[in-house]
C-alpha cells in the first residue's frame, strides 16, 4: 500500500460552477436586452446586495475587520455621483468615477481606522460614517436632510435608463466579484486567510498584515461606493439620512452571517436570501427589522458558520476554486 496524495484546487464541482456562473452572466446580458422593467430594476437591487455582502465579507471574513460603518462609503458613493453629475460629468461616468474617488479617500482614512481593534474599529467606523453624513449635509447642493435628485438621469427615457443601469450593475458586480476572486486565488489570498485565522501569527510568518488589511479596506470602500451609486441610479432621489443610515450595516451583517462569513460563496448566497426575504417581508416594517436583528443574534451565537459554512463542513463542497484540498488515496 502506497498512499499517494495530490493537492488539488479545481474540483469537479468548482469546474461546473464556474461554467454556471459564466452562463448566468450571459443570461443576464440577454436579460438586459429583452427583459421587462420590473425584472431589471429588481435585478439592480440584487446586484447592490451582492456587492455589499461580498465587500463586507471581504472586510470581516478575510481581513477580520468588523465594520458597522460601511454606510459611509455607500453614502459617499451616491453623494459624489450627484456632485460630479451636477458639475457636468455624464451621469453614468459620474457613478463610476465616484467610486474611484471614494476608494482614493478611503486610503488616508484606513491609516487612522486600522489602528483600532475589534469592537473599537466597529464603532469607530460608525463614527466615521456619521462624520461623513454631517459633512455631506454641509454641501449646499444637498440642501441638508431635504436631499436632491439625480436630475441628469431624466435625459434618458425610462426604458433606456433601466437597461443601461442594469448593464452597469451587472458589469460592476462581476468586476468586483472577479477581482475579489483573483485576489483570493493569488498569494495574497493565502496571506489573507492566514490573517483571518490569526493575524499575529501571520505577521510573525512575514505577512504584511497592515498592508493586506489596507488593500481590503480600500476595496470594500470601492464596492460600497459603487453600490451606493447604483442605489442612487435606481432610486434617483438622494436623502442623506437614508444613505448614511446604520440599517445598511445591519443588512450587510445579516447577509454575511446567514450566508456564511469568510466564504466567497456564502456572501453571495446570503445576499440572495436577503433579497428574497426583503421581497416578501419588507412590508412588515418594524417586525421585519426585529426579525433581521434576531437572526443576527441567533446566527452569531449558535450558527456562526452560516449556511454555506455548514455546507462546506458537511460535504466539503467548494463551488469556487479558492482554497486547496489535499486528497489522499490508498490505492497503488
Amino acid at each position: 500500500m502506497n498512499p499517494s496524495y495530490r493537492i488539488e484546487r479545481w474540483t469537479t464541482a468548482s469546474r461546473i460552477s464556474v461554467w454556471v456562473f459564466a452562463l448566468l452572466f450571459l443570461a443576464a446580458c440577454f436579460l438586459s436586452q429583452s427583459g421587462n422593467d420590473s425584472l431589471l430594476s429588481r435585478g439592480v437591487v440584487l446586484f447592490v446586495y451582492v456587492l455589499l455582502a461580498a465587500t463586507w465579507n471581504a472586510l470581516a471574513g478575510f481581513a477580520g475587520l468588523m465594520s458597522v460603518g460601511q454606510q459611509a462609503f455607500f453614502g459617499l458613493g451616491a453623494y459624489f455621483a450627484i456632485r460630479l453629475s451636477d458639475s457636468g460629468v455624464p451621469v453614468f461616468a459620474a457613478m463610476g468615477l465616484s467610486a474611484i474617488i471614494v476608494a482614493a479617500l478611503s486610503w488616508p482614512m484606513s491609516i487612522v481606522m486600522l489602528r483600532l481593534k475589534d469592537g473599537e474599529f466597529a464603532i469607530g467606523m460608525w463614527v466615521l460614517a456619521s462624520l461623513c453624513h454631517l459633512l455631506v449635509n454641509l454641501d449646499p447642493l444637498i440642501q441638508g436632510e431635504t436631499g436632491i435628485s439625480l436630475i441628469a438621469l431624466n435625459a434618458y427615457d425610462p426604458e433606456t435608463r433601466r437597461v443601461i443601469l442594469f448593464t452597469f450593475a451587472l458589469v460592476s458586480t462581476t468586476a468586483v466579484l472577479g477581482f475579489l476572486f483573483f485576489l483570493l486565488q493569488s498569494r495574497f489570498g493565502t496571506a489573507l486567510q492566514a490573517i483571518r485565522d490569526n493575524d499575529e501569527a501571520a505577521g510573525s510568518l512575514g505577512v504584511n498584515v497592515l498592508k493586506a488589511k489596507r488593500l481590503i479596506f480600500v476595496f470594500a470602500a470601492f464596492g460600497g461606493a459603487i453600490a451606493g451609486a447604483l442605489w442612487l441610479g435606481a432610486n434617483i432621489s438622494f436623502q442623506p439620512k437614508t444613505y448614511f443610515g446604520v440599517q445598511w450595516s445591519a443588512y450587510m451583517i445579516f447577509m454575511v452571517l446567514v450566508g456564511g462569513i469568510g466564504t466567497f460563496e456564502g456572501a453571495i448566497l446570503g445576499a440572495i436570501v436577503f433579497f428574497i426575504i426583503e421581497t416578501f417581508f419588507a412590508a412588515f416594517g418594524v417586525w421585519y427589522l426585529i426579525g433581521l436583528g434576531t437572526a443576527a443574534i441567533v446566527f452569531s451565537l449558535v450558527f456562526p458558520q452560516g449556511i454555506w459554512g455548514t455546507v462546506v463542513r458537511k460535504w466539503n463542497l467548494h463551488l469556487l476554486p479558492i482554497g486547496r484540498r489535499l486528497s489522499i488515496s490508498n490505492e497503488k
Binding site: 458597522v68 466597529a122 452571517l257 436583528g293 443576527a296 443574534i297 451565537l301
Partner: peptide, 21 residues
C-alpha cells in the same frame, strides 16, 4: 470578540425596533 460585536449589534437593532413598535 468579533462575534460579540455582531450579537450586540443585532441586539441593538431588536431593541430599537421593539421600542418603536
Amino acid at each position: 470578540p468579533l462575534l460579540a460585536v455582531l450579537a450586540t449589534f443585532g441586539m441593538s437593532v431588536v431593541i430599537d425596533n421593539l421600542l418603536f413598535q
